[in-house]
C-alpha cells in the first residue's frame, strides 16, 4: 500500500534537509501570529456572538495544530501510514465528545439536586419561575421541563 512513498522517504531523509529546514522560522512566525490573533479575539471584546468567537479560536487552534504536525512533526514528508494511524484516531477523538454531548451536555432530564427536586416541587418551582423571570439564561432546564 505504501510502497512508493515510505520507502522513498526513508532513504531520502538526508536529501530532505535542505528544503525541510527552511520553513521552520516562517512556521514559527505564523504560529505566533495565530496565538496573538486568538488572544486578541478575547481581549478586544469585539462583541461578537460567543458561538462565533469559539468557532474562530478553535479554527485558529486547528490551523496551528496542523502546522505543528505537518512541519515540526514532519508529517508532510511521511508515508501514507500517517493517515492510517491518525485519521481513525482523529475521528474517534472527535466522535467521542459528540456522542457524550448528546447525553451529558443536552439534558432531557433535570440536573439539579435530586433530593430537593421531587417532581411536585419542580412543577411548583417552574410555575413560580415562569412568573418571575421568563428567559433567564441560567435556566436551560426550564425549556426541557415540559418533557417530563
Amino acid at each position: 500500500m505504501f510502497r512508493r512513498k515510505c520507502g522513498a522517504t526513508y532513504l531520502m531523509t538526508d536529501e530532505h534537509h535542505d528544503h525541510q529546514a527552511a520553513p521552520y522560522m516562517a512556521i514559527f512566525g505564523l504560529l505566533i501570529v495565530c496565538t496573538i490573533l486568538s488572544a486578541l479575539a478575547d481581549v478586544l471584546e469585539l462583541n461578537l456572538p460567543s458561538a462565533f468567537l469559539i468557532f474562530i479560536v478553535l479554527v485558529i487552534a486547528t490551523i496551528k495544530a496542523m502546522f505543528v504536525m505537518m512541519f515540526f512533526m514532519h508529517l508532510k514528508f511521511e508515508g501514507k501510514w500517517k493517515y492510517v494511524i491518525l485519521l481513525p484516531t482523529a475521528v474517534l477523538a472527535l466522535a467521542m465528545p459528540f456522542a457524550l454531548a448528546s447525553d451529558i451536555a443536552v439534558h432531557y432530564y433535570d440536573v439539579a439536586v435530586p433530593q430537593e427536586n421531587t417532581l411536585l416541587d419542580k412543577e411548583v418551582l417552574a410555575e413560580e419561575q415562569a412568573d418571575d423571570h421568563q428567559s433567564h439564561d441560567g435556566h436551560k432546564n426550564g425549556e426541557h421541563g415540559g418533557s417530563h
Binding site: K82, I85, T89, P97, A101, I104, A105, N141
Partner: peptide, 26 residues
C-alpha cells in the same frame, strides 16, 4: 506515533469531559 495515538485518546477523555460537562452545566 502509536503511543501518541493513545495519548490523543487520553487527553480526549479529559478535554471531551470538560466540553460536555461545561455544556451540560447550567
Amino acid at each position: 506515533w502509536l503511543f501518541l495515538g493513545t495519548e490523543i485518546m487520553f487527553f480526549t477523555a479529559f478535554i471531551g469531559s470538560y466540553i460536555v460537562l461545561r455544556l451540560g452545566s447550567p
